[in-house]
């Protein structure tokens, strides 16, 4: 079975191409965020789970909730997703859209985990080092994870730089038990 992200990919790249052509990347980013909020609303989820509602009903309901927050093209996207029964891929569409947008703007998101809160100065140094390595603008998202004991762990996409005490202990355990 294909994963949702695979299904979402053509929608996301379609939306991205359209938004780029129109010069509306920021606006689309907001609209997609709004659509996701609507979709994730418990009331909406309950309505979507209701088997008595037809696709046309769902479409009407969804668009009426969104109201004036989205433009014509976004209404078309919602209609398309509902008619193709792919509304559940909306989250992934947004994620992929944001990734494409970040790629276009040469920005990567980095998840920075540290054992203790770090100062702005330290974060700046770290960000500069990461930027030199990945050749992109790095947008750090710092989280404090005491389990690391010490040091820092950075994740960009699927790649992980592990310079934490926990990581070193793990690799030592592997080396000793092998």
């Amino acid at each position: 079975m294909a994963e949702l992200i695979t299904i979402a990919r053509p929608y996301a790249s379609g939306v991205f191409a359209h938004a780029k052509e129109q010069g509306q990347l920021a606006k689309w980013s907001e609209m997609l965020a709004f659509l996701v909020r609507v979709y994730q609303d418990p009331g909406m989820q309950a309505a979507l789970a209701n088997p008595t509602l037809t696709r046309a009903d769902v479409e009407r309901l969804f668009l009426s909730v969104c109201g004036e927050h989205i433009d014509g093209a976004a209404r078309n996207l919602v209609g398309l997703l509902i008619r193709n029964d792919r509304l559940e891929a909306l989250l992934q569409v947004r994620e992929l859209f944001e990734a494409l947008k970040a790629g276009e703007e040469s920005i990567v998101d980095a998840r920075v985990e540290t054992a203790f809160p770090i100062t702005d100065e330290q974060l700046r140094t770290l960000t500069q080092k990461l930027e030199a390595r990945v050749q992109r603008t790095v947008r750090p998202n710092v989280q404090v994870v005491p389990d690391l004991i010490g040091g820092v762990r950075v994740q960009i996409g699927d790649d992980v730089w592990d310079a934490s005490v926990r990581g070193q202990l793990n690799s030592m355990a592997t080396a000793l038990t092998k």
């Binding site: 994740q155 790649d159 992980v160 592990d162 070193q168 690799s171 030592m172």
Partner: peptide
């Protein structure tokens, strides 16, 4: 054995792809 293993263990930042 443990001593030699500890001595040969190079500890540094490791870079891996994960999922």
């Amino acid at each position: 054995l443990i001593k030699s293993k500890i001595q040969n263990l190079t500890v540094g930042a490791e870079m891996r792809t994960q999922g």
